[in-house]
Design a protein around this nucleic acid. Sequence first.
DNA 1: ATGTAGACTTGGACCA
DNA 2: GGCTTCCAAGTCTACA
Length: 261
Amino acid sequence: MPEILEVESYRMLAERVIGARISRGFSDQYAAKKLPSTSFWSRSVKGLTITGTDRRGKLMLLDTDGMRLGMRFGMTGVLLLDSDAGIDGLFYGPHTYRSSWIRAGIEFEDGRKLVLHDPRRLGRVEVEPDLSELGPDALRIKRKEFDQVLRINRGDGPALKARLLDQSVVAGVGNLLGDEMMFRAGIDPRRGTATLTLVERDDLFKAWTQTMKTLQRRGGSHTGDHMEGRFPGGLCPRDGGEMRSATIGGRTTYWCSVHQH
DNA sequence: ATGTAGACTTGGACCA
DNA sequence: GGCTTCCAAGTCTACA
């Protein structure tokens, strides 16, 4: 389930280990896929002290007195501290945990463990992650940066949905979040990015910031207004219009045929 | 530059 | 209950 709001909740959870010293790290070959070897993680983290946390889009960062560490949560990853979850009610399916689904983590000298729990193994640990390929953070985006997201040099540009999902343009918009913003703004996700009018840009920016605020209060990306109609044959919860769906930007996209133009 | 399809990975939903 | 098929919150690569 991790979209940016979930990752932010994991970052907040990780703040609790600031000041703790790592006694040991572990990772399986899948979680270590972005590293030179499976053992690279355990060798790198040993002895480091956590000095802070950060996040860029869906990449969570742990600052230390040595190398900077990163964690990605894929589609089903969750961060657990000992057995405490960051936020309740955000877990995949019926809240199932299995110790066999813990793919990587770090243990501290004080006995605590910070672990990546990930049934589908798409989560990753990173050492000195490269942030240069990531756009500005979607959670704290400023109007100026937002305008850059919509800025296209030539032609109509890619479909708006595809643009929003491009992590190098803006980091942190996931599939559900992108659909929710456009649903609220009343904009068709297939529209070329550069075809938005000034008014539509304003609407989208407003919808963007409000979506982040509202969903954070509700507790995640799965509680958006459009979710109710997000299935084949679904109806728009706002106006009863038929919801349409298509693959845009590589992901299944839902929008209302009535109020999204 | 932009789009698309497939891979990766495993479990849940749905159906017979 | 078990098997099949499809689908999924996110990247990542290959290719038109």
